[in-house]
């Protein structure tokens, strides 16, 4: 079923919207969740919760790209769950590493408070990612949006793992410079 019809099912409050979403994008969302959580059981729960969130959000929302709308929900739910997994002393897997890597970029930046600053950070990151050369952008998105391992990214783009690591390292350095400049200036440092 095409995405337009699935969205219409949501609008019509037809529960087939969920089964159709699951059939079409269940595996895609599961992979995104499992990259973050490294746990089959938790990832399945996040995917199930995704359909519920989507059900509550559509309408009024009408997603432009359903797949990305759904995977963003899954990603947010998975990151929320990551905190509770820690409380239960369970793993962090690739996400823990990605957080560690991004921590390098965040080091030394001002703390972000308030809705306006949150929006500013979102704007900066959106602009930063969009400005990257195509391959660097794709590699960065696979690592920090989909939380894929370096090995998987290397296979995906036919590169060596060293080359992926080098690109990521270079991009993180640029992001760090941007965040330091913009956020610390805004913070008056």
């Amino acid at each position: 079923m095409d995405d337009g019809r699935i969205i219409e099912l949501y609008f019509a409050r037809d529960v087939r919207a969920i089964t159709e979403s699951d059939a079409k994008y269940g595996a895609y969302c599961f992979t995104a969740a499992n990259n973050i959580l490294s746990s089959r059981e938790d990832s399945e729960e996040c995917v199930n919760d995704t359909w519920l969130r989507a059900w509550n959000a559509i309408p009024p929302k009408r997603p432009q790209v359903l797949k990305l709308f759904l995977v963003r929900i899954t990603r947010n739910l998975s990151l929320d769950r990551l905190g509770s997994l820690r409380a239960k002393k369970r793993g962090g897997g690739e996400a823990a590493l990605a957080i560690e890597e991004l921590g390098e970029c965040a080091a030394g930046t001002a703390d972000v408070f308030g809705e306006v600053m949150e929006r500013e950070v979102s704007r900066l990151i959106r602009g930063f990612v969009h400005s990257l050369p195509e391959t660097d952008r794709a590699v960065f998105v696979r690592r920090y949006f989909f939380v894929e391992s370096v090995k998987v990214i290397a296979q995906r783009y036919g590169m060596s793992e060293g080359s992926v690591m080098t690109r990521l390292s270079r991009t993180r350095k640029k992001l760090k410079e941007l965040l330091n400049k913009e956020l610390n200036e805004n913070d008056g440092k």
Binding site: L79, A98, I99, G103, E104, A106, T109, A110, D111
Partner: peptide
């Protein structure tokens, strides 16, 4: 700002 916030 933290790595976790950036990931989000």
């Amino acid at each position: 700002m933290t790595g976790n916030e950036l990931l989000r």
